[in-house]
Computed example of a mutant assay.
Amino acid sequence: MSKETTVDVQSPETQVDGRVARSERTREAIAGALLELLEEGVLRPRAQEIAKRADVAVRTVFQHFDDMEGLYAEILRRQSERIAPFLVPLDPHRSTADKVRALVEMRDNMYALAAPLRRGMTRIGSASKSKTFESALEELRRVMTQQIQQGFVKELHLNTDPYDVLPRIEAITSFEMWDHFIQVQGASRTAVRLHMTVMVLRELQPTG
């Protein structure tokens, strides 16, 4: 007796789903390659370097991303997911000092994670002029401001100039301030946290 031979024939829908999945994996590999290169200090990665790291052909990079804006959008999306845990609301029931320490700790951890990409993006000519990059930074600043406003409602209310205090706290806890301490002054992250904590607490002292 002859044995029946079973042929596994995939439906057109399954074949399409497979191609979509492979395409998505390739996009992720390319975006991940650029992110890794920037984090390793390669400030102006070339398409050849990105392709080599992603293990794809150079033409594949441009097949999956119409332009650099599309590639920037993808790595910024990935970065947003990574820093989300540091943008959670502060517990309003904690003391002012505890909230300040929590805020500064989250800022420090977020900046340490994001610094390589942030520095790399600002040094790439096309990225520094990118509307995608600009929009992402604007949204990040909005969320960071909201975190301060909601976390220190009582403290800001007790201050006679809350509209002046808020931008000063934003400046003190900004990436630019953090990076200046780290890059220019050579301060340790522990020292930066201490400086920021002291300055924010000083700003939040009740006035009037």
Results as ranks from 00 to 15, higher is better:
D8C: 02
I83E: 03
S95A: 10
V16S: 10
P45L: 08
S80M: 11
A97S: 11
A21V: 11
V56I: 01
T60E: 14
Q48I: 10
Q10V: 06
E81T: 13
T96Y: 09
D17R: 14
V58E: 04
R82A: 15
E28I: 12
E74T: 01
V7K: 01
I50L: 07
V88C: 02
E13I: 06
P85C: 10
Y72H: 15
D98W: 08
R94H: 09
E39L: 02
Q63E: 11
V9G: 04
D67K: 08
F86K: 02
Q63T: 08
L34V: 07
T5G: 00
D98V: 11
A73R: 15
Q79I: 01
T60A: 15
F86N: 04
A57N: 13
L38V: 02
E13T: 07
P85M: 10
D98M: 11
L34R: 04
L34W: 03
R59Q: 11
A97Y: 04
A31T: 09
Q79A: 15
V7F: 05
D8F: 05
D98R: 13
L76H: 06
P89R: 05
D55Q: 14
Q15E: 13
R59D: 06
A97P: 00
D8S: 02
V20L: 08
T14S: 14
A54G: 07
G41T: 04
T5S: 08
V9T: 12
G32V: 05
Q48K: 13
R77M: 13
F65G: 08
H93T: 09
A54H: 06
V7I: 12
L34K: 06
S11M: 02
V42F: 04
L38E: 00
A57K: 14
A51D: 03
D67A: 07
R82Q: 15
M68H: 10
F86T: 05
R77V: 15
L76D: 05
R22M: 13
A54L: 08
A31K: 02
P85L: 12
A47G: 05
L37N: 01
R94G: 03
D91F: 05
V16G: 04
R53P: 00
G32L: 08
R25I: 02
G70F: 03
A29S: 12
P12S: 04
G41Q: 09
P85S: 11
T60S: 15
Q79C: 09
R27V: 10
E13A: 12
E36F: 06
I75S: 06
E24T: 08
E49K: 03
Y72D: 10
R27P: 03
P45H: 09
R22T: 11
K52S: 15
G41Y: 08
